[in-house]
Simulated assay, not measured.
Amino acid sequence: MKALVFNGPRDVRYERFPDPELATDNSVIVKVERCSICGSDLHMYHGDNVGVANYSEGVEPFCVGHEFAGEVVEVGKSVHRHKVGQKVLASGGAPCGRCEHCLSGHTALCKHWTAFGLSTRLNGGQAEFVNVPMADLTLQPIPEGVSDEQSILLTDAMCTAYFGLTRTAMEPGDAVAVVGLGPIGLIGVELAYVLGASKVYAIDPVANRRAHAANLGAVALAPSQALPTIMEATKGAGVPRVFEASGAKSAVELAIKIAGRGSTASFIGLPQPDVQLPMLKVLYKDITIRAGVASVIDQWPHLIPLLQHGRLKAEGLFSHHMSLAQGTEAYRIFDAKEDDVVKIMMTL
């Protein structure tokens, strides 16, 4: 098959790769129809550390990508929910199905949860075909009324946005700040209004992303404007609910500065080692800190009805449409933030 293969930092190539086989009886093979690049893929692309993995050197080539949807073409004998010909979308990763958390129904806490497209342990879906383990949990039949673009967002970005936003413990009438307006942050802005926010401050250095947030009704601010504007508007109180969706050092620091006393701040951006919380400010402002990686599977029951009833649209996020064969250039554009890129859809 053809796939996008990681060969080292900033070296993702469209090339031949061995076809996947059913790895376990609970696996299926999916023929990928569309996929996308996630901001977290850039950490691998840059050769950074992701968890215990170091992508700077000596990595065996693997297929990249954890956001994909397509058609089931082969089914393991222990799979019960899926059949050949079914259109499906995938969770960004798979639980092991064996640890005590999986066996007790708490797959979000799986000790061995593995993301697609970070190593040969679980090759990714920016490829013509992909093996999907624990398919009865990891795959979701594409629901009626969900568009192609929404189906890709349900593989990670939309679920991470819902996870991160709801962990601020926001209630109807609350003011919310969203720091970082990539796709996850922009979906977070829309979701905040869906869930009853009275006002949303949307903060990002990129003008076109601020414009998108403003079209959703948010008060869109450049980082340099955020602190004085919010403190003036709140008479120095700050914001009670803060959703940080970047992971950048400056974004994390700003999130704590604009958070009010007794507030809750939720962090989902993947930080690098130099990112630290200013703990004295956290302590003196009595800020509740929430951080984690979303269990995509657990967010689907909340999000799919919102999409089907038109409450949530998540439109206009795919600024670029390219073929998988153009994947090397897609990564370059996405990394360089060229041409007002927000998110790239690749089709096969």
Rank of each mutant, 00 (worst) to 15 (best):
L303Q: 07
Y284M: 12
L283A: 11
L277D: 02
H309N: 13
I289T: 10
A330L: 11
L306G: 10
K281Y: 00
S295V: 03
E315D: 14
A294V: 12
E315I: 05
R311M: 09
D335C: 03
R311D: 13
K313V: 10
V293D: 07
I333N: 01
V282L: 01
L303Y: 06
D286M: 10
L283N: 11
L324W: 05
H309I: 03
P278H: 05
L306R: 04
D298R: 15
K285Y: 01
R290T: 11
V293K: 12
R332T: 09
A294H: 00
I304F: 00
Q308D: 05
H320W: 01
Y331T: 06
T288D: 08
P301S: 00
R290K: 15
S323E: 15
Q308K: 06
Y331H: 08
V293S: 09
L283C: 15
A330C: 09
P278M: 02
A336C: 00
H309F: 00
A330R: 08
I304Y: 05
K285A: 01
L312A: 13
V296I: 11
L312S: 03
W300T: 04
K313N: 08
W300A: 04
H321D: 14
T288C: 08
I304W: 05
Y331R: 10
V282F: 04
G327K: 12
R290N: 12
H309T: 12
I289F: 01
Q276W: 10
A336F: 04
V282Y: 02
E338C: 00
V296K: 01
Q299D: 12
H302E: 12
E315M: 07
A294P: 09
R311G: 08
A325P: 03
V296T: 13
Q326F: 04
V293H: 13
P305R: 07
L317F: 09
S323Y: 09
L280Y: 14
L306V: 09
L283D: 10
L283F: 15
G292I: 03
H309W: 03
R311F: 03
F318G: 10
T328S: 14
M322R: 10
L324K: 12
A314P: 04
H309V: 07
A291Q: 13
A294S: 13
I297G: 07
K313M: 06
K337Q: 14
D286W: 05
G310E: 01
Y284D: 15
E338H: 09
T288P: 01
S319R: 11
H320N: 02
H302W: 00
L324A: 09
M279S: 11
V293P: 02
